[in-house]
Amino acid sequence: MVFISPVERVVPGRVVGERDALVQQLEFQRATLLTKLEGLDDDALRRAGTASGVSLLGLVKHLAATEHGWFLKIYGGVDEPELWAGEADFRVEDGETAEVLVEQYLRVCERARAVVAAGELDDVVTTPSGAEANLRAILIHIVQETARHNGHADIIRESIDGTTGE
C-alpha cells in the first residue's frame, strides 16, 4: 500500500502577526514533510537514502522526537520519557511502519499545537543544558529544523524515484 498524506499543505499568510507567521510556517513545513512520502510504499520509505542510513521514515521519526522534546518536555514540562534515546530516532526498527511512525508524528504535533496555543511567545523555560529559551525561539528552531530535514527528504526522495518537489 502506498502512502497518502493525511494533511493538506496550506501556504502561510504573507501579512500576519508574529505568532500566526511562526505557527503557519511550522504547519507548512510539517505538511511538506508528509508530502515527501506520498506515493511510496513502506519498503521505499524505509530505504536508506544517505551513507549514514537516514530514510524518509527516519526523518519523520526524528522530527516526532524533536517536537516531543522541545514542545512537550522542555516547554510544556510534561514528565514522560523521551520517545527514543539518542540517535535511535533516525533509525527505523522492525515493526515501525509508515502508519505507526506517521501516526506518532501526528499525535506529537497535535499535542504540541495545544501546548503552543496555551503559551505566550515570551514565556521562558530552562533547557536540560541550563540555557534559557522562550517559546518564540523554540518555534523558530523547530521551523528551521523541519525545513532543513525537508531538504534532506527532497534528496532522499529524488534518489528513490526521481521525484522532485518544493
Rank of each mutant, 00 (worst) to 15 (best):
P6W: 09
T35A: 09
L40A: 15
L37R: 01
L56W: 02
L121S: 01
P81E: 14
G95P: 15
V143T: 10
V78Y: 05
V100Y: 14
E158I: 04
R113S: 01
V54N: 04
C109E: 03
A85Q: 14
H141V: 14
E99H: 04
R157G: 04
T66L: 11
G119F: 10
R9G: 03
I155K: 00
A147R: 01
T164S: 07
K73Q: 15
V124M: 14
L83V: 12
H149A: 09
G162M: 10
D94E: 15
E96D: 10
S5D: 00
R148V: 04
V23P: 11
Y105W: 15
R14I: 10
V108A: 01
D161G: 04
E8K: 01
T32L: 07
A98K: 12
E80L: 13
A85H: 12
F71M: 13
G17T: 14
A117W: 01
E8Q: 05
C109P: 00
D20W: 04
L37S: 02
E110M: 04
E96G: 11
R19P: 09
E103C: 02
V54L: 15
R136F: 14
E18F: 02
R47F: 12
A88T: 11
L45M: 01
E110F: 01
D20K: 13
E18P: 15
D41K: 10
A65C: 14
V2C: 10
C109W: 04
E158D: 06
E80A: 15
E110W: 00
I140H: 12
V2N: 13
T97L: 05
V78T: 12
R47W: 11
F90M: 13
I74S: 12
I156N: 07
V102F: 12
T32S: 05
H62R: 12
L22W: 03
L45Q: 08
R91K: 10
S55I: 06
T66W: 09
A64V: 05
C109L: 06
W84D: 06
P128A: 08
